[in-house]
């Protein structure tokens, strides 16, 4: 289990406590600045209250994220197979050397990056369009529309993966029948028999499933753009495209970046769709599946932990790039301007 937990909880660990703690501290500092001595007791009480409120969650976070991460790092330094407990052996960074010199790791990384980039880009464009539709929809149909758009997101990934798999499967699928008129598609096309077509189905399923999530985040961003700004632009004679490019998008940059970051982290840890549809066959191996294969199937806890740790480092890198280089403001997008 150690293999899957660290990566899965990263989003929560890096994103959630941040805003809460920051908001608390800002308030405290602001008041301290005005009259430090008079309010010091109150500030202390508030801080204490802050810790008491956030403390249990913080401790639980430490237990469920920090502990498994440290355990995984420790285990990754050993050659250790669950069914041969007596042969546990310390090998330092040996597992990392094996992984980083193995073409399987690099092809898995490449596939994972490809899936991440393609799905996030397509989802961003589609999600933005859906957000606009939801934003502009008449009040009477707004509820219905939002529900309809959110349905795929409410479906369990494994279930949607099976649905897509059976739709495209050469034996039971109907896609070849329906789309036989398109060039390249006929009765004999086996979608899961080669990498490119299999990846197409995996990515399409992923996009169908998670576009609603990104559109919801973008809708929140759209709602934050003041109407006066677009009105003013209209009065100045700006076309629709100019309003979009010069007023709306710049004003919701924070929301877009947060949406991209969250989805990129999620997409990078893709597992369910690949596991169900191809189980990594024919060039569809992704990093999460690689970690799973080492630690769960092979029961090689050391090697599997090392893959998990490397996967975790990749996720951290994505966070670092987004937050430091693209300056994603996690607090701002949540309305705490």
């Amino acid at each position: 289990m150690t293999s899957a937990i660290p990566a899965r909880t990263t989003t929560a660990a890096s994103a959630e406590p941040g805003p809460h703690l920051d908001t608390g501290e800002d308030k405290g500092n602001g008041r301290t600045g005005k009259a430090p001595k008079q309010y010091s007791e109150r500030v202390r009480a508030e801080r204490r209250l802050g810790w008491i409120l956030a403390g249990p969650a913080f401790v639980i976070m430490l237990l469920v994220t920090l502990y498994p991460i440290l355990q995984a790092i420790y285990e990754s330094l050993f050659r250790f197979r669950l069914t041969a407990p007596g042969e546990r052996e310390f090998i330092g960074l040996g597992n990392y050397a094996v992984i980083l010199t193995d073409p399987v790791w690099w092809s898995g990384l490449w596939t994972t990056v490809l899936i991440t980039v393609v799905t996030v880009l397509v989802e961003l464009v589609l999600g933005f369009a859906l957000a606009l539709v939801m934003h502009k929809a008449l009040k009477s149909v707004r509820g219905l529309l939002r529900t309809a758009i959110l349905v795929p997101y409410g479906i369990i990934t494994v279930v949607s993966a099976f649905a897509w798999f059976y739709a495209f499967d050469i034996n039971s699928g109907y896609i070849n029948n329906w789309f036989g008129w398109l060039p390249g598609i006929d009765q004999d096309l086996n979608w899961f028999a080669q990498g490119p077509t299999a990846l197409f189905v995996i990515m399409a399923s992923e996009i169908w499933k998670t576009t609603p999530f990104i559109s919801l985040l973008l809708l929140a961003g759209l709602a934050q753009v003041p109407d006066e700004l677009t009105e003013a632009a209209k009065v100045d004679g700006a076309t629709w495209w100019e309003q979009m490019r010069k007023v709306i998008i710049p004003n919701m940059k924070a929301a877009i970046m947060v949406a991209v970051l969250f989805r990129a982290l999620d997409a990078f840890r893709i597992f369910d769709n690949v596991f169900i549809m191809t189980n990594g066959a024919y060039g569809t191996e992704v990093l999460s599946l690689l970690a799973y294969r080492q630690s769960i199937s092979r029961l090689e806890i050391g090697l599997g932990s090392a893959v998990s740790v490397l996967l975790f480092i990749c996720v951290l890198l994505i966070c670092f790039v987004a937050i430091k280089l693209f300056k994603v403001d996690l607090a701002g997008s949540q309305g705490g301007k």
Binding site: D169, I170, N171, D188, N190, F192, A193, Q194, A281, Y282
Partner: peptide, 11 residues
């Protein structure tokens, strides 16, 4: 047949 690369016992 075309389904060979993904064919298991049931298929």
């Amino acid at each position: 047949g075309p389904s060979l690369p993904t064919q298991n016992e049931n298929a």
